[in-house]
Structures are given as C-alpha cells and as structure tokens.
C-alpha cells in the first residue's frame, strides 16, 4: 500500500533484493533524505524498490528509523558514550557483514543520524591504535602483500608483452609474404611444383 500523503500512519511497501516486500511507516521512511527527494511528494505506485540491499539489512535500517521517530531532532553526531542502551544493543547485535551492509544502505538512503553513528563506531575501532593495528581493523593490504601483488602484476605484464611480441612477429611475416611481387610469387610456386613433379616422376 502506498500513498503520497504525509500522514505518519501511512505505510509504504519496500522491495528488497530478494524481491520480498515489507511495509514501513511513513514517519520512519521520512528520515531518509533519499526517500524524501524521490517519493514523498509524488508518491509511489506499488512497492518502492531498494533492490541493492537485502531484506535483513533494510529491515535493520528501518528498525532504527522506527525507533528514532520519537527522538528529538538530530543535532549533529553524538559521542559513542552518549548513545542510549537501545542504540548500543542495536549496534552490538550486528555482525561485521551486517554492519557494513547497514552503513552502505544508510548512506544510500541518506539517513544522517544512523550513518553518523556507524561512522563514529568505525572511528572508535581505530582510535588510539598503532598503524599495524589500524591496518588489521580496516583490512588494508600490508607492504608485503602489495609487493607480492606488484610482482604478480609484473609477471602478467611480461607474459602479455611476450604474447604481443609473438603476434607482431607473425604479423610481420605475413606482411612480407604479401609484399612479395606477384612475379616472384609465381616463380617460387612454379619451382615448388616442378620439384614436386620431378620427385613424383622419379618414384
């Protein structure tokens, strides 16, 4: 059920990447600036497709929106220590994969409060750590891995160069054949034929 009305009781149908639909209240959806820009004024016929994200992720994101409907207006990022018990539980329940999906979905839907809390949470994982520990958290390739990757790329480039050189050589050969004057070609084929004929007659 969809409606362009701005009443908070209106429910909107959301379609996930699996093709499943579920309904979300208008008040919760209005926290998404993307939704506000796309559907709030014009309404939507049929379910609203957010097909880049799976059902579990979207439900989690809208669970947060439903919860924060009654909270005071968002006024900049809160420090992690200021988060409510509900907020902390909400984040702690998620595994890393879900957390990453929620950040991406929240960023796409432009839900400022949720995106900001998620970013603060990542920043908290990095704070006070040394470079090596930071690399582990954000899974950056280490210097050795980069070196190994570079070596593989160099090998690939060398192999590609060899193939290209061979191709160039064969192309050159065909070109030289094509460039031979017609008379010379006729002569060479005649010679070959006579040689064949002679060998055949000898037999």
């Amino acid at each position: 059920m969809t409606s362009p009305a701005s009443s908070s009781e209106v429910k909107y149908l959301i379609e996930s990447s699996e093709g499943n639909t579920f309904d979300v209240s208008g008040a919760a959806l209005r926290q998404s600036n993307t939704f506000n820009a796309m559907f709030l004024n014009i309404g939507a016929d049929g379910p609203i497709p957010f097909t880049d994200y799976n059902e579990a992720t979207l439900k989690k994101v809208f669970e947060y929106c439903e919860h924060s409907v009654n909270e005071e207006n968002y006024s900049g990022p809160k420090h992690q220590d200021d988060l409510s018990k509900w907020d902390l539980n909400f984040f702690n329940e998620m595994d890393q994969k879900m957390f990453i999906d929620v950040i991406n979905a929240s960023n796409f839907l432009d839900i400022e409060r949720l995106t900001s809390y998620c970013c603060e949470r990542i920043a908290r994982m990095l704070r006070g750590k040394n470079t090596q520990e930071m690399i582990k958290v954000i899974t950056l390739p280490t210097a050795e891995e980069l070196e190994a990757k570079q070596k593989v790329e160099e090998k690939k480039a060398a192999a590609a160069k060899k193939v290209a050189e061979k191709a160039a050589e064969t192309a050159e050969k065909t070109e030289t054949l094509e460039e031979l004057p017609v008379q010379q070609l006729v002569q060479t084929t005649r010679n070959k034929l006579t040689r064949k004929y002679l060998s055949f007659s000898n037999e």
């Binding site: 950040i103 991406n104 995106t115 900001s116 998620c118 970013c119 990542i122 954000i138």
Partner: peptide, 14 residues
C-alpha cells in the same frame, strides 16, 4: 572490513 570500499561520504565522516 574493507574501509576503502566504503562510499566516500562514509570515509570522510569516519
């Protein structure tokens, strides 16, 4: 968590 794969706005916010 592959940090560099996040959208630029998320990286900036972090």
């Amino acid at each position: 968590m592959k940090f560099l794969r996040f959208p630029m706005l998320v990286i900036k916010d972090v």
